[in-house]
Design a protein around this nucleic acid. Sequence first.
DNA 1: GGATCTTGACTGTTATCACATATCAGGATT
DNA 2: AATCCTGATATGTGATAACAGTCAAGATCC
Lengths: 232, 232
Amino acid sequence: MTVTPASSRSVRRIESRSVSEQVTNEIRRSILAGDLAPGQSLSLRRLAEQLDVSFIPVRDALRVLEAEGLVMNPPGRSASVAPLDLEEFHAIYRVRRLLEPDLARRSVPLLEDAEFGRLYQAAAEFGGTERSMDDIYDDHRAFHLALLAPAASAWDIRLLTMNDRATERYVRIGFGLLDPNPAEHDRRREAHQLLVEEFRKRDPEIAARALNEHLAHNEDLAHDALSGAAPG
Amino acid sequence: MTVTPASSRSVRRIESRSVSEQVTNEIRRSILAGDLAPGQSLSLRRLAEQLDVSFIPVRDALRVLEAEGLVMNPPGRSASVAPLDLEEFHAIYRVRRLLEPDLARRSVPLLEDAEFGRLYQAAAEFGGTERSMDDIYDDHRAFHLALLAPAASAWDIRLLTMNDRATERYVRIGFGLLDPNPAEHDRRREAHQLLVEEFRKRDPEIAARALNEHLAHNEDLAHDALSGAAPG
DNA sequence: GGATCTTGACTGTTATCACATATCAGGATT
DNA sequence: AATCCTGATATGTGATAACAGTCAAGATCC
């Protein structure tokens, strides 16, 4: 909705990454933002033309995104955006509610005092008007990751990122319906500030419970929006 | 194990997978079996020549295996087999011990009576002398998956497979040191039969605990072997 | 003699091209 | 009228070739 052509004209950091990676990021962004609808067929040559590259990097990107669960890439046939499935959504959240509170429990004793201040500030600045929707969700992921990072191994981070991306599509749709309401933005900001406060108490069980409730709340919110908007 | 019933008298499914997939499977097998040592550099053209294909499928394979965590594929530089890291090993097992007992809890009420018989038989036939080491580990993964499959969503299966493959390298080294001992084979067979027996009681907590202990035991075994063999 | 620059082989990346296969529309057949 | 066959079109797949970056060894300069 807020994906205006003007926003794409803003200067972006020069990224000397490979074309393949840039294509991967762009297609992923389009899927997460909903610009590419679930089930939509993805033709290599068409995507390549739209992105003004050869279809080799596109091919790579689709393979990577298949591994992330965002696209289906059956051999011999065209790739397509992975469909949305409410049961799948809850399955992923069940995993998140098993892994993340456990990480919170072990992260709390390791977090630096100064880190709480930074995190609280980050939560307070959440959803600033100058940031695009894509940026906001990047911030969101970074925020949650920072809460758990001290106790997270490389594998944990890999799984956290996978789970977060896989649920981001659903959450975006759910919150998208609430977006016009400005009070909702305040609520989310306060929810994240509260989360930092609970972590600051340095009690593993309190932190684990707070994160669990935070996840459960988001899950319910997205579920209500999705089951109401897209029955079946 | 090959759970296919004898009733499937139909013609064998033709498995003319794409070259890319065959290459992926072969490189993955080599890594899991230890034929490709951790840290070893993987040259596209050399691999392509050894496999007698162009380096395009090899490239695809390395990208997929990177997503699985088995190879590192930094842009612009040569890919390499992901190094072994004892801390990482325990981190993955921590995840497994969070996810799999929970799945066991929910799978137990859904398992068919007949399935227990098949699983027990599969456990009894474990490690038959005619099966290669690669086959045995395939059987092992299929066995554990079958225990949890009734309650597992597609996402669960994806994560289970990822975790299992990521730990298989470590476990293989650990068990490799014990392999010459024939009593060890009996022990593993009995351990899996016991696991089926515990599941057959249809008590979620018993099943969860049994699976947790099974995982913990394997983790310890591999840990001891690894910390003794590869210090640091 | 040691540090630095240059050169050359090697490697990943991307583009262009050739081929097998899937998809679909249109027409012939039953 | 429905179904099957058959073409053409489009699509994924794999190979070859050209380009660019990396890395190490050897030459050069201080």
